[in-house]
C-alpha cells in the first residue's frame, strides 16, 4: 500500500494526522485551482480551506478505486464554480481585483524576471476571468493539471464531446483577447 493510500484509509477512519498529511500533499494543487478559478489570492485561500473541509466531511463516501487527485479536484472545481455563480457579476473583473499570490512556483531571485513573471500572471488571470466558470475550470484542469478530456469530463460532470467543444471555444476566445 502506498503512503497516500494508507493516509486515505486512516483519514477515512477519522485519523486527523493522516488527513493533515493529505492536506500537505495536495495544498498547492487545490490552492492553484482555486486561484486560477477565482483570480484572487485571499478568496483562493478561503476556497482551498473549504474544499479540504468538504473532503474531510465526505471522505467516507470516497471510492478508493477512483483517483484521489481527480476526486479532490472535482470537489474544488465544483466549489469554485458555485462560488463564481453566486457572485452574480460579470466575469471580467476590474484590474485591482486581481491579487497575485505572494509565491509562484517559478519565482526566481532575479527582480526583473519576477516583475515580468508577475505581469504575465496578471495577464493570464485577466484572460481566464473572461471565461464562463465551467470553461475556466476546463482550461485550468487541462493546462495546470494535464488532465485528459475524460478526466475533465468526470470532474465537471460533462460529456467528452462537451469538453472538446468547450476547450475549443475557450481557446478561441482567449486567443482573440491576446
Amino acid at each position: 500500500m502506498t503512503n497516500e493510500a494508507e493516509w486515505i484509509q486512516l483519514a477515512q477512519e477519522g485519523d486527523q494526522v493522516a488527513f493533515g498529511r493529505l492536506v500537505m500533499a495536495y495544498q498547492t494543487p487545490v490552492y492553484n485551482l482555486a486561484y486560477r478559478m477565482l483570480g484572487n489570492a485571499a478568496e483562493a485561500e478561503e476556497a482551498a480551506q473549504e474544499t479540504f473541509l468538504r473532503v474531510y466531511t465526505h471522505l467516507r463516501s470516497y471510492d478508493r478505486q477512483r483517483s484521489f487527485r481527480s476526486w479532490l479536484l472535482s470537489i474544488a472545481s465544483h466549489y469554485c464554480i458555485d462560488r463564481l455563480r453566486r457572485r452574480r457579476i460579470t466575469w471580467l473583473p476590474l484590474e485591482d481585483e486581481i491579487a497575485v499570490p505572494t509565491r509562484l512556483a517559478s519565482d526566481s531571485p532575479n527582480p526583473e524576471a519576477v516583475v515580468m513573471r508577475r505581469e504575465q500572471e496578471e495577464r493570464i488571470q485577466q484572460l481566464l476571468a473572461a471565461l464562463s466558470p465551467t470553461d475556466r475550470a476546463a482550461i485550468t484542469l487541462r493546462y495546470w493539471y494535464d488532465c485528459s478530456y475524460e478526466e475533465i469530463a468526470e470532474a465537471l460532470d460533462l460529456t467528452v464531446s462537451a469538453v472538446k467543444s468547450r476547450l475549443h471555444r475557450a481557446r478561441r476566445a482567449l486567443a482573440q483577447m491576446m
Binding site: 493533515g20 492536506v23 500537505m24 495544498q27 498547492t28 494543487p29 487545490v30 490552492y31 492553484n32 486561484y35 486560477r36 489570492a41 483562493a44 485561500e45 482551498a48 480551506q49 479540504f52 473541509l53 499570490p101 505572494t102 509565491r103 509562484l104 512556483a105 517559478s106 504575465q120 500572471e121 493570464i124 493546462y143 495546470w144
Partner: peptide, 14 residues
C-alpha cells in the same frame, strides 16, 4: 504559467 503555491499557513488553518 506555473502553479500558484499555497501559503504555508494553509494546512494549519484547515
Amino acid at each position: 504559467a506555473p502553479m500558484a503555491r499555497a501559503p504555508v499557513r494553509l494546512r494549519m488553518q484547515v
